[in-house]
Amino acid sequence: MKKLSIIVPCYNEEEVLPLFYAEITRVMDEMKRTYAELTFELLFIDDGSRDKTLTQLRELATKDQRVRYISFSRNFGKEAGMFAGLENATGDFVVVMDADLQHPPSFLPEMYSYVRDGEYDCATTRRVSRKGESKVRSWFARKFYRIMNKISQTEIVDGAQDFRFMSRQMVDAILSMREYNRFSKGIFSWVGFKTKYIEYENVERAAGTTAWSFWSLFRYSLEGIFAFSTAPLAIASVLGLVSCVIAFLMMIWIIVKTLAFGEAVAGFPSIMCAIFLLGGLQLFCIGVLGQYLSKTYLETKQRPIYIVRETEQIYQERKAEHQD
């Protein structure tokens, strides 16, 4: 027998959870008829939701023994949710997918067919279009992947999703990277392993609204750059060197202009321009250094990636205590 663990990070997903559960159970029953050796585990990660997501997960765990859940003490972010799921999944194969049905469960049988025989260690989806997204957001997303692949030695495929079907060996490799500042798209690529990309058209949310604003995506992209590239440090060094060369050439020009042609050099405007230029460059370089230093600072604290407030087992124990 082989167990498939399906990890579903959730944040304020009360509107879409019933739709997701209905679809995923349909797919699991279909796979069970085709692959008799499979058993299933549904592991939901409640990332500090403020709606009735946790209440629904309690009900699902009560009526379906395949359902497990972990509820965080607060919102730790999707990266922490995925890590918690991978760390607590018990399956021989592990899937990470969203609850909003933008990651269609109908792909699971095809993914399993690629990974089950060991031909691939991972099967994942790759969007070939960004249908439903604004043009501005799509443009920035494409530019991010292009820049990231130029400045980093870790290749990140444009359009690749967090929707991944992985072998236990690949999951264990990911779990060995216990860094606090996590960027899973980069981690999935960095650990390697043979991956099958399945192309598909973008699917919009089945219900509810996304928690990813443009600003949160921008900050997430910066996390990826600082986590998998030291190019910003090199850029800061190059800018400093270029500034020194420009300043040296300007000094020579001023000396030659004054001695050879006897022309007076305007003092205040040139000084102010030099001050603003060099001051801006210094602040930019210090900011880049500060970003790397802040990441190092957070790593040395060795804080837990997430804190558990409740699981289905803890809930049942509390419920039994109240009944007694």
Rank of each mutant, 00 (worst) to 15 (best):
V94S: 06
Q282S: 10
Y21H: 14
S49D: 01
R66D: 02
L249V: 14
A266S: 12
R50W: 06
I225Y: 08
F218W: 10
A123F: 01
L108F: 00
I271S: 10
H103F: 00
G81W: 01
C285Y: 06
V238I: 13
V191A: 07
S176Y: 01
R168M: 08
T258A: 11
K194P: 04
I252A: 09
F76L: 09
Q282E: 02
A264H: 11
G240N: 14
G91T: 01
K32T: 04
M97R: 03
P109N: 08
A36Q: 09
E321P: 01
L298C: 02
E155N: 13
T296H: 13
T39P: 06
M148N: 03
V242K: 01
K78M: 07
P269G: 08
K131M: 05
R74V: 06
V238M: 14
D117Q: 04
S221P: 02
V157T: 07
L298D: 06
G290W: 09
P232A: 14
N149Q: 11
A207F: 11
Y112M: 07
V238K: 15
L283D: 07
N75G: 08
N88Q: 05
D51T: 02
K135L: 08
D51R: 10
S294W: 10
K185R: 13
C122R: 00
F214G: 13
E179K: 12
E119H: 09
T53N: 05
Y306G: 09
I314C: 09
R126I: 09
D46F: 03
P18W: 03
T311D: 13
Y297K: 14
L281K: 12
L57G: 05
F276K: 03
C122W: 01
I235T: 14
R168G: 11
L281H: 12
S176M: 09
L222A: 12
I45P: 00
L19C: 08
R164Q: 13
P18A: 07
L239F: 12
Q56I: 08
R126N: 06
D98F: 03
F83C: 06
A234F: 04
S138D: 04
P18C: 06
A206N: 10
I147D: 09
R318P: 02
E263K: 14
R205Q: 12
S229A: 15
R164E: 03
T210P: 12
I235R: 09
S237N: 14
N75E: 04
K194L: 08
E155I: 10
Q316T: 09
E87C: 03
R58W: 00
E299W: 11
K3R: 12
H103L: 07
A247S: 15
V256T: 11
Q323Y: 10
V265P: 05
M250H: 10
R66L: 00
S5K: 03
M111L: 04
M97A: 04
K301A: 11
S134L: 00
I24S: 05
S152R: 10
F140Y: 12
T258H: 09
